[in-house]
């Protein structure tokens, strides 16, 4: 049958397109890994040594045994974890009320939250820099984490509301009948059920925090306080062609935790984003 024949042909075309796309999207990261496991001599051989003759882990060793680099990693984790936790703590009650109550101004507030999210962090940081300066909070992780936290709140409120919306109210009503207070209901009934939504909101906040560059770049200038994103930028400014492999190794180490966390929870995160995208 010709119909089946054309379908087969279309399958082949799909495979070809998929392979080309996979190659194009994977190439930058593969090249990065390739550079990171080369000796300096092989870096200068370019594409001819895409798979190095003498692969080495020496670059990673050098980066990871550098004490300040460990500090940068720790700073990055600390800032994004504090920011993500803080964002969830303030967003949960708000999202819960948005989900469970209808009160006047609720949808206007939700739209307001959506709107502020669209404002560039750069715009906010111009005045925030001055406030932090006056409060003596420049060069502190507390101030930076506070901004990470604030930047995560709008997205968290929207995501958590969506996940609370999906939990049947009847379960909460049962708890209320048994004499559970609203806060108790939220804690013991709703939150456990909303665990997948909470987890994906938390991981998304962590990923955004891990990528965050502008906030620490502006609010922190002391080297020991910098997270990894700022550190690799500064490192890149000080490297030359002969240390490309070290920069590549540093980039791999920066990128890897984000990719690993994401892959581990991919299904959860994508479905959360998809729910947001479909519903708005």
């Amino acid at each position: 049958m010709t119909g089946r024949g054309t379908e087969r042909l279309a399958d082949l075309a799909t495979y070809v397109i998929a392979l080309v796309l996979i190659a194009l999207f994977a190439a930058p990261l593969l090249w990065l890994v390739s550079l990171a496991i080369r000796t300096p001599a092989e870096v200068f051989l370019g594409a001819a040594r895409f798979i190095p003759d003498q692969p080495t882990l020496a670059n990673f060793e050098q980066i990871l045994t550098d004490r300040t680099f460990g500090l940068y990693l720790w700073n990055g984790i600390k800032l994004c974890a504090l920011g993500a936790m803080g964002a969830l703590v303030v967003s949960v009650p708000a999202a819960y009320v948005f989900s469970r109550r209808s009160f006047r101004g609720a949808s206007a507030l939700m739209l307001g939250i959506l709107t502020v999210q669209m404002v560039s962090p750069l715009v906010l940081l111009i005045p925030l820099y001055r406030y932090m300066e006056r409060l003596g909070l420049l060069e502190t992780h507390a101030a930076a984490a506070g901004v990470y936290m604030a930047l995560g709140v709008p997205l968290s409120v929207w995501m958590l509301k969506a996940s609370f919306d999906a939990i049947p109210k009847s379960l909460e009503q049962a708890a209320a009948v048994d004499g559970c207070s609203p806060a108790g209901t939220l804690f013991f009934v709703t939150l456990p059920l909303a665990a997948p939504g909470m987890a994906s909101a938390f991981i998304l906040n962590m990923l955004m925090g891990w990528s965050q560059f502008l906030v620490p770049f502006i609010l922190l200038s002391r080297d020991q306080l910098q997270p990894i994103s700022v550190a690799i930028f500064n490192f890149a400014g000080s490297t030359s062609a002969s240390t490309t492999q070290l920069l590549a190794a540093a980039c791999v180490i920066t990128v890897l935790p984000a990719i690993a966390a994401f892959l581990a929870l991919q299904r959860l995160i994508v479905s959360a984003i998809m729910a947001g995208a479909v519903k708005g």
Binding site: A18, L21, I22, F25, A26, P28, L29, L207, W210, S211, Q212, F213, S229, V230, I232, F233, C251, T254, V255, A258, I259, A261, F262, L263, Q266, V270
Partner: peptide, 15 residues
Amino acid sequence: LRTVVLTAWVVPGIA
């Protein structure tokens, strides 16, 4: 394919 495309997305902008 989907995973590779999503992987690029979580790479920090500076990196």
